[in-house]
Structures are given as C-alpha cells and as structure tokens.
Design a protein around this nucleic acid. Structure first.
Lengths: 162, 162
DNA sequence: CTGTATCCTTAAAGATACTG
DNA sequence: CAGTATCTTTAAGGATACAG
C-alpha cells in the first residue's frame, strides 16, 4: 500500500476535499493567492517552499481548475478561480481557529472590510438563509451515500437516540 | 531537513492549524467523532485507518485538548471538546465544497436540523454580527505579525492598489 | 476490545544544478 | 524570473504480531 491512503476511496466529500487540499502546502498557497500574491516567486519566498514542490502544486491546482494561469508564458501569473475562492471560507475558519488556539489570540493577519469591521467567525447557514447551531445538526445519508455509509450513519444515529 | 516542513515556524495561524489537522486523517477522525462515534473500533473500521496511526492521532488530539477521553481505561470512549467542536465549521465547509465539486453535487452525508432544514453554506460574520462578502475582505497585519509578515502584507496591499 | 511494539515500504519533500 | 530534472533523505503510514 502507499504511504498516503487513497482518501478518495472513502465515500465522503471531506475525504475527497482533503485528497486535494489536505497536504499542508496547498491551503497555504491558496492563502497567498487570496492575499493577493500572483507570482511564482512571491509564493515561493513567502512560504519558503521548494520550487519543484510549488511548481507541481500549482500545476495540480490549475488542472483542478482551482487556480487560473494568466499572463505570458515566461511571466505567468496565478489567481484563484471561483472554485478556488470557495475554498477560502473554510480556510479562514481554520485560520481563525489557529488565531484563537495556536497564537494566543494574537492574530498575525486580520481580515476586514473597508469600514474596518473585522472578520470574527463562520456561521452555518441553512437553505432558507437561517443560522444553524452546530449542536442542532444531525447527519443522515444523502443520495451519494453507499450502502456501508448508510449502515454506519444509521448505527450512530440509533446510538445517539438511546 | 525533514520531509514535512515545520509549518508552525511560519508566522501564520493557518499554518499552525494545519500543523495539527493538516495531515489527511485528523479531520476525518474529528468528522467521525462529530457524527457520533465514540469508540476506537468504530473509527478504525469506518476509516480503515491502521490501528497504530489511529492510536497515535487520538493521543495527540487528547494532548491538544481537542478530544477528551472518558470511560474506563480498558473501554475508553472519545468525544470532541469545545476546542474540537470549533474545528467542525471549517470541516463542514470543506465537506460542502467536496459535495459540490468532487461528488457531482450528490452528497453522501447531509447535515440538517430536526425540522429538516439542510446545511447549505458557511457565511463570514464580522464582530458586529453582520455578514461579510469574501471579495470585500482585505488583509492587514495584526498584533501577532512579525516584521517579514508586515512587509509581505504591505507589498501585496500596495500592489492591489495600483 | 483497545491498544503497543516492530519492522518495512514508499511517496513526499528538499537540495542542487541547470535551462530558456 | 520561472521553472525542470535529478538525486537523496526521512518521516509518515501500513502490516503484523503480541498484550492486558
């Protein structure tokens, strides 16, 4: 077997996401692009990532349509696609969590709007636009669920109700 | 140098978070705990993770106060602490992203409240409780920022304003 | 059931040199 | 500046056996 499990084989969208962005560098690259970096050298220097690794990651991200490559061939620039931008909220969630628990509450980077309102938290929103509380959520199998996933979820639900 | 970079050395809360949960398995373990799994064997079977790896991860998560160990010594059970629960929103964000982009929109798992309202998205909230738009955000250095971080953010901001 | 202890494999990351 | 091509290293992950 390989060193890294093929998480995509799991019947779980989180596993599939992590197969793409769960490697430690990828979300940091996306962070840099969201911050406004566009050049290879900017990201390379900012993160201290080896050039071959950065090259390979950017290639993968472009293939996955998370990043778009523009500019000239010899001086390309990179930017997040809509698909890539949609990764930013969970990314910011992890960042805020790190601010709170790993940085003594002293954020190295603050995100705010022009009127200086500061990003504070992520909120869960349902299909009607209402806020949801984490502890009110329960899981059930969806249309993409395989047999074993259904069994597992049913067992856990049953357990909770006891 | 080591195979895996010491991301914690970066002056970034995202990097510090990823140092803890950015390994591919950890968020999946937290997912299982959030779904209601409490036992070692439940997680082991659900994810197909090797027992020594799961054991080591649970140990690390307990040390980090993300997971709490209860029950008897021979039959322990695990559950998320408040600190662990706060990782769930970004986790769900990645999961929703995977539903949309990696699972053809066919979610294997649906999260809903008792009145069957379904989790749809994450929203960014500022300190006054208002919704923020991703594209309205800009980054600036906070009190935890080191010199190089400030330089980097200033350069990117300047670049944007040109 | 819940692990611990070994051993082994390998893919991921880094360093370095080189190219247009 | 923006990579590509090699080579090397090593830590992470897996398999297996064993233990309380």
């Amino acid at each position: 077997m390989s060193v890294r499990s093929n998480l995509s084989a799991l019947n779980c969208s989180l596993a599939k996401s992590l197969d793409i962005v769960g490697d430690g560098w990828t979300l940091l690259i996306i962070r840099d692009l969201f911050l406004g970096a566009t050049r290879f050298s900017e990201i390379s220097q900012s993160l201290g990532i080896a050039k071959n690794i950065l090259s390979e990651r950017l290639g993968t991200l472009c293939e996955a349509k998370i990043v778009e490559r523009g500019g000239t061939n010899t001086r390309p620039h990179y930017r997040l696609s809509e698909k890539g931008l949609e990764l930013v909220p969970p990314l910011l969630g992890l960042l805020l969590w790190g601010d709170k628990y790993c940085a003594d509450g002293k954020a190295p980077i603050i995100f705010e709007t022009k009127n200086e309102n500061r990003l504070e938290e992520l909120r869960l929103i349902d299909e009607t636009g209402q806020t949801m509380l984490l502890l009110d959520l329960h899981a059930k199998s969806g249309e993409g669920a395989e047999f074993l996933t259904k069994i597992y979820l049913d067992r856990l639900t049953e357990k909770k109700n006891q």
